[in-house]
Amino acid sequence: MAAPLHHVIIGSGSAGFGAAKTLREGDPDCRITMFTMDGIPFYHRYELPEIFRGRTDWRDLLAVPPSFYDEHRINLRRRCRVVDVDGAAHTVSLAHQETVPFDSLLVAAGGRAYLPENLTGQADLIHGFGSFEAAMKVYRDLPKGGSVIMIGGDMIGIDLLLTLLSTGYSVTLIVNAQTFWPHELSAGERAPLLDVLRNKGVRVIENARPVGISARNAGAPARQVALDDGTEVGGDVVMAFCGLASSVEFMLRADVDIERGLLVTPELRTTNEAIWAAGDVCQIWHDGDKAYKFYHGWKNVRVMGELAARNIQGAHEPFDVDVEDSIWVGEDGEIHSTFWTRET
């Protein structure tokens, strides 16, 4: 009897989790190993703002109970950082010096928050929101009723922003090109959306670029942001939501084509026969546009994970975008987006 196939997945987000589940459904005998830097099993990132409504126990956020992984024989390996993928030898190397062979590899490592270049020197003064752990740090560092300075304000950030407002915090929004990312909006399209936020009490700053961040008090998480118009704004926590940058640096030796993300066919295969990619990490060939394109958002990402899994197991289904992304102000006066609600 041939040894069961070993499917390795890098990333345990929507794409990775969906892929693992689908792989198991397709093959009861295969081995499935999923690597993640996270400390806890899969949860929906979009539920992280719920922390501000008191859901601070990570166990309440899990999409499935830990026993799911045992039952489905998914070897979930947390706190594991992949440092290298050898595309010829078909092995994954981990930071702690373990080498894991694979028959197929699905890269679903997602992306990390993009930081405006001029602020990278002050990264340690900016609170992240990319994981439960980061979100909890914001929650703990933010005094009750405190204020957040949000730079950019992509759709993940706007979601948090709305939760913060409804839970008694105040927000200053410094608008830039990535505000409402991944929706690509003109100034005119953006204006009514910003008005909605203003009406809710958000202090919106347009036409000024943050150039420096400083800690106001030693030890306290209070921040001062300097703008290029010479003014300063103060807040308790500074966060940057300027879209995602793909996490691909460990793929440089993998024998795959990389632009900003991993370049994949509509079937989500990379230029290496054994390696697929799904989610925010990949750019998918669009035959109509003759270009590789990112498809962000929870729904796209999950679909990609499941699709990649089926294709790994022999299917030949192309990724098909069935919904056009859009953002609008609804009749209720609220902002609506396909990024959040998965419906138009």
Binding site: G39, D70, R77, C80, H96, E98
Partner: peptide, 27 residues
């Protein structure tokens, strides 16, 4: 556990491969 071993190990040679999903790994 130590998450920076000094010598390479094969798959499963690191303890992180054996921590159950309900347990909390600290490297």
């Amino acid at each position: 556990y130590d998450d920076h071993l000094i010598a390479p190990v094969p798959e499963g040679g690191h303890i992180s491969a054996h921590v159950r999903p309900a347990q909390i790994p600290y490297g």
